[in-house]
Design a protein around this nucleic acid. Sequence first.
DNA 1: GCAGTCTTCCAAAGCGCTTTGAATATCTTA
DNA 2: TAAGATATTCAAAGCGCTTTGGAAGACTGC
Lengths: 351, 351
Amino acid sequence: MPKSTINLKQLSQHLGLSQTTVSRALNGFPEVNENTRQKVLAAAAQFNYRPSPSASSLATGKTRIIGHVVPISEHKMINPHFADFLAGASEAYSAAGYDLLLRTATPKQEEEIYREFASRNRVDGVVVHGPLIDEPRIEVLKSIRLPFIVHGRTTMNGDDYSWLDVDNATSFRRLTQHLIDLGHKRIALVNGLETMNFAHRRLQGYREAMETNQLEMIPKLISSADMNEPYGYNATLRMLDCDTPPSAILYSSILSAMGGMRATGERGLRVPQDISLATFDDELSFLQTGDGQPREPFFTGMHSSIQEAGKKLGQMLINQISNPASNAETCLWESKLIVGKTTGPRPRENS
Amino acid sequence: MPKSTINLKQLSQHLGLSQTTVSRALNGFPEVNENTRQKVLAAAAQFNYRPSPSASSLATGKTRIIGHVVPISEHKMINPHFADFLAGASEAYSAAGYDLLLRTATPKQEEEIYREFASRNRVDGVVVHGPLIDEPRIEVLKSIRLPFIVHGRTTMNGDDYSWLDVDNATSFRRLTQHLIDLGHKRIALVNGLETMNFAHRRLQGYREAMETNQLEMIPKLISSADMNEPYGYNATLRMLDCDTPPSAILYSSILSAMGGMRATGERGLRVPQDISLATFDDELSFLQTGDGQPREPFFTGMHSSIQEAGKKLGQMLINQISNPASNAETCLWESKLIVGKTTGPRPRENS
DNA sequence: GCAGTCTTCCAAAGCGCTTTGAATATCTTA
DNA sequence: TAAGATATTCAAAGCGCTTTGGAAGACTGC
């Protein structure tokens, strides 16, 4: 059992080599004899040598750390989607020898954190969460030259930055159309905040489908707010209790859909006989069986794995960092309609 | 607008002082004239100077980073409780100038990650999640001298380590008693994995209450597995469909309770008229209203904020790190019974 | 007026790595 | 075999900070 940690100097002395050679052998430089390299590798393994991140970071100027500042509201609300997203990203980082640094912050604090990241050289890059339609963070990051990638995209900021997004408009056009095909006419939308780009595009997709089919969009049946379970519950109750109740409801998040489920149950409505519910499903892992078995999906919805998105975004960002000259890379994912148990034909008695 | 980043040397040259003095002024050492300190502070602000973390870390041997390795199953399942826990911890870290490093790993990989943390000096300490009854990680961390704190505690590892736990046995004794007081006799328990210490203690609390009241514990009505929504759903269905169905069910997590809610609904049972459900509630933020309003609680359950736990644990760990001579600190939190809409008296027709 | 104390400040030596610029050893080719 | 090319290795100079071990100036008290 080797004592504690050993450093480069000690290791090279033990080997009778210079630090230069040992360092290069370890880092895979071509100009070191293969014999020597093997000896170095063996000794490094034997003494359990690992380079100090602070030292290499100081010498190279690279931290091999990616920063995530995840939004948290004034009321300490944190979106559980991040758990899955971060798990995916973390997988990509580990594979490439990077680490994930996590900060939580209110939107107001976020810009200052980026500036701090840049001036202290705390991270090599960041991923931007929850972009707005018009996103000021993008200009900030460009101006301070901090490499970044956006999960989602914006509408107003041009396209000279890297992002990965699901095709939200198409997703909601298709999901709405699915309900229309089932005969529904009064279709409600429980959406995210419309300043958020994803919610904006989802509304757009919904509108396209409604207009194509010449169905009326009833303002009372469109709601938008931060997505969580109680919001889904309350919004649903409000819609059910109004004078033009829907026969189908679309949710932007499975969290609010669960709240919707609770609300319909409370009003004595059977799903899908009395009312249909459909949602965008990020495949949050705590809603999966976890035994590797595909579970029969409960909610009907458009599926796209947020964990996979995290992984892909992580890889894209690392690519960009290790290859700074490369152009912005963008990626648009389609989501998949999966029909579950929460949608059915429009009931007769309903308008 | 200051150009890019400035370093200590440049700053001290600008001030006509030595790096020593500037460094000490910035770090609050007493042996620098108050006048000088003010000048230094002003100049630092003006040039937006921030010390480089890699450099100070190399010089001091301290990283000011706390590591969290959160478990992820083979099937990429990640528990959303972590989102709230990490948000709480992160708050404590930010306040103390620390950062949070996140790794995801299967239980097998975890020990190796700790060893890597120690030998590379990657973090100043770690928090251990989800301790088992007999927890090998504790010995590993002690042997490699990596400061740590445990969220939860163990049963077999002595008590010379720091932890914070909720009183799981008392929580479940009380929750069970609450149902017994309502007249329930066949009370089921949908628990976490019993190798996990928290689940072990919850079972114990449940058993105490049942035995005290001379109620029979029916094996079919006790289940234990990794907690998620489908598990709660399946376990509940199994119990409802057996020959000794319960009139009340206890859940170890609100996620499985939600699955239970779905299952009872599917079987046409009304809650709480036909069956009572109660749960341990970690006050996950996505289930709160998020508008700061206290929402009327839906599930009856024992409450304890996991976000607050994260915050407190973060503070305790930082204390311990900045004060290495201090003794292990432990903290046992009581949870609070909150009666919601999911529990009621035992229905007549039920046994 | 001078030893003894404080109070303030500084030069320089690291911390553990990477990398530049050169030196040495080895191999070609004429 | 000598000059030129190539393959290996190395000494030393940083990277940006902290901290040790003084030193210089300003005050004491006698």
